[in-house]
Design a protein around this nucleic acid. Structure first.
Lengths: 261, 261
DNA sequence: GTGTGTCGGTTCATTATGTGAACCATTGGT
DNA sequence: ACCAATGGTTCACATAATGAACCGACACAC
């Protein structure tokens, strides 16, 4: 792996639960040498990608990332464009809608919208990581990813949540076939108890799968009627976001969605 | 310079006017070898920091920067915290208020707020770069930056705008003294014609200057009365944002601001 | 006080990694 | 058919990354 990759890997240790970390801690978490970490962090600090804070000299993400994000949204307004669709999807279904993005082999929450209809709702957070093995979004993405990518992802370590749900790689592979034939993915009480997730894939201009649009419903209030309504709204919204993003939906999937709506 | 620094420098070529660029163009703009650029870009693409788009294979900022920005704002909500103050400053003065951040020796717009009072207003954009030599924000930052930093910045090339305004390094150095003695910076029709800017510095928890809060007023409607109102509101808002951010304002500056308000 | 464990940061011999001129294969214009 | 771009690749070479050992500072235990 190149030096730049190592440096960028250091950024992944920052999460919502661990917003900052000391030098030794970072070295321990990444398995890199302390001196190496120090050099890489110093170099990133000079560009504002990370910054040191307080007398403990802990590192955290720096202000430069904000600037880059503004420029990205100005150049390609994925979030701004999708937000209205996401909100109308949440309103139409009465449940939580969310959008996830595939970046570097990991599925991240890009945006979400709640419905005001029910007091009990599935809650989310921006930048959360979604496990492939146990979410509808993950299944939707896997189903339309090239075989080699799927292999690479499934050969990785199974996250704790997937193991506890007794989902093996074979289970996931079997599910992929169903998902592809149906045009959307569904999971029941796997990612979280009492959450029913349904998702459709999103594509880029070259027809490569780059993420998923999903509805996360509170399982106790699911009915056959609500289920069909969600499928209809989800496929419609999926087609809409793909159109807004300039995504190229495979023709067979397009017809599946047309029949679902 | 290290490899990581070179890689991150490549990101700086993306601006609002040039949201994407081809490989050869990037190599030309950065002065790096084409093969080097390609390797660095490929490595950054693997982490989603940049992405390639369309049949031209041009590069642009990738989706990973959004995730990093969410995590940054979640960890240290600079923008969210400052936004209300910025809006009330714009409302109280009837002019445009904006906030800039010093990152990697460059002053970037972090946020801004317009007043609805007048149809003619000074307009801004997120992530814009402010020249030190010809803005109130730049002067405010220079006035409270360590001498060595000031030297480093002023020894750099003068931007075209500063030259056209006939402002030399000596001019700027002289101005710094006045700014420091007064507690706030002011420029008249320098950054843009018919724009009067006034700014106060912002500090981090260690008392280091990290940015500026400014009001950009339409010069034609400036009156002595408005001028004193802006100074009062600006210093009050400056103290407030420094408090919100946990910034340590130098004691002598605190007293200057108290007398101005 | 004196050990013992951290911490952030630095040094420097070793070597892995990055470098870049020259090279393809394509594309688009003349 | 030619030329001048483009994005991307190769490989001998040299620069830049590496990491065990080190430092001084701090905090806690005894």
């Amino acid at each position: 792996m190149g030096t730049v990759g190592k440096a960028l890997d250091l950024l992944d240790i920052f999460t919502r639960l661990r917003p900052q970390a000391g030098l030794s801690e970072i070295a321990r978490l990444t398995g890199q040498n302390k001196a190496t970490c120090h050099r890489l962090l110093t170099e990133m600090e000079a560009r504002g990608l990370v910054e040191q804070v307080g007398p403990t000299r802990e590192y955290r993400l720096g202000p430069a990332v904000l600037r880059l994000a503004y420029l990205r949204e100005a150049a390609v307004p994925t979030r701004d464009a999708a937000m209205p669709v996401l909100q109308s999807l949440a309103r139409a279904t009465g449940e939580t809608a969310h959008l996830s993005h595939l970046v570097g082999g990991v599925l991240h929450t890009l945006a979400f919208a709640y419905s005001v209809q029910h007091g009990v709702k599935v809650t989310m957070d921006d930048a959360d990581i979604l496990p492939f093995h146990a979410t509808a979004s993950g299944a939707a993405v896997l189903a339309w990813l090239p075989e080699v990518e799927v292999d690479r992802i499934l050969s990785g370590p199974l996250p704790a949540r997937a193991r506890s749900a007794n989902r093996t790689v074979a289970d996931v592979r079997a599910a992929i076939g169903h998902v592809r034939a149906r045009g959307w993915a569904e999971t029941l009480s796997t990612f979280e108890r009492d959450v029913q997730g349904m998702a459709v894939p999103l594509f880029d201009a070259q027809g490569a799968c780059i993420g998923a649009l999903a509805v996360a419903a509170a399982a106790p209030r699911m009915t056959p009627d609500l289920h069909t309504r969600i499928v209809a709204e989800l496929t419609r919204a999926g087609a809409e976001i793909n159109a807004l993003w300039g995504g190229q939906v495979p023709p067979d999937l397009q017809t599946l969605w047309r029949h679902a709506a």
